[in-house]
């Protein structure tokens, strides 16, 4: 297996390349426009990999995605969970669906909370074992913290859950779907450190394990979903800049040129 984390420090964002060394094919997960389409193409080529799929854990609100362009440039599918309210065509994923490159499997785990369509990706290197090795947790489970549930765009049709409901759903998703994974599974989040997508307890370390987070994550140490929701609200950071318009672009509601316009 080839596994590479790309960190974009200005917004503490992490994207990923997951590929099979033998098959020489890979997926890119959560590509960021600030690094850009060509960055991912070159990184993949340098590892002798061909990009055969672009995956997103969710439609982001704090950074501009380049998943659509990257998929188009490589003439490959752009995968998002089926319920994503995007206004463009994508390849819908089901809960539990497995994508494969060579001996490497990526399994979609629907984990609503941060957004309704949020999905984690469990990584299995079949060349070693069928046991999962790592999980890309997007904006659900962070290292030391969790993804905030309050980045709503103010559109009832898109914001199908309120803030409270999202917080409680986030709690259940993590407890029931991530904390039930084997302890050894490594955790790779979409954000770390100072990112505005999580709270004040988020670690600057961009990876962890299920065991470590079960033991030491303060948000998940809360006794129930309600206390969790309260804790997340109290420990939240200021909202990310311009998140409404960034999210609108990632949903396909506005053009790229419109992101920086009035409303910032």
């Amino acid at each position: 297996m080839i596994f590479k984390q790309f960190r974009y420090e200005p917004v503490n964002q992490a994207s990923y390349l997951i590929g099979c060394a033998r098959a020489k094919e890979c997926f890119i997960v959560d590509p960021i426009d600030d690094l850009g389409v060509d960055f991912y193409i070159m990184e993949a080529a340098d590892l002798n990999q061909t990009i055969v799929g672009v995956l997103e854990t969710h439609l982001h609100a704090d950074y501009v995605s380049c998943a659509r362009e990257l998929a188009e440039a490589n003439d490959c599918p752009h995968y998002v969970y089926k319920s994503a309210p995007a206004k463009y065509e994508f390849t819908p994923l089901e809960d539990g669906q497995v994508l494969q490159v060579g001996e490497v499997k990526v399994k979609a785990i629907h984990t609503p909370g941060h957004t309704p369509e949020h999905t984690c990706y469990l990584v299995i290197d079949g060349a070693r074992t069928d046991e999962p090795w790592a999980v890309l947790t997007g904006d659900s489970l962070f290292v030391g913290d969790v993804g905030r549930p309050d980045l709503l765009v103010g559109d009832q049709a898109l914001d199908v859950m309120g803030e409270e409901e999202r917080a409680q759903t986030q709690y259940r998703s993590i407890k029931e779907k991530l904390f039930t994974l084997p302890d050894h599974v490594e955790v790779f989040p979409n954000h770390y450190g100072g990112s505005a997508c999580g709270g004040v307890n988020m670690s600057g370390k961009a990876s962890s394990t299920i065991y470590f987070e079960k033991k030491f994550n303060l948000a998940l140490a809360q006794p129930d979903a309600e206390a969790f929701g309260k804790f997340v609200k109290e420990t939240a950071k200021p909202l990310p800049d311009n998140y409404g318009r960034i999210k609108s672009y990632n949903l396909g509601l506005i053009e790229k040129e419109e992101i920086a316009e009035a409303g910032v």
């Binding site: 389409v37 060509d38 070159m42 080529a45 440039a73």
Partner: peptide
């Protein structure tokens, strides 16, 4: 292919 590779 993609063309970015050709240019580089």
């Amino acid at each position: 292919e993609p063309e970015a590779i050709g240019k580089m």
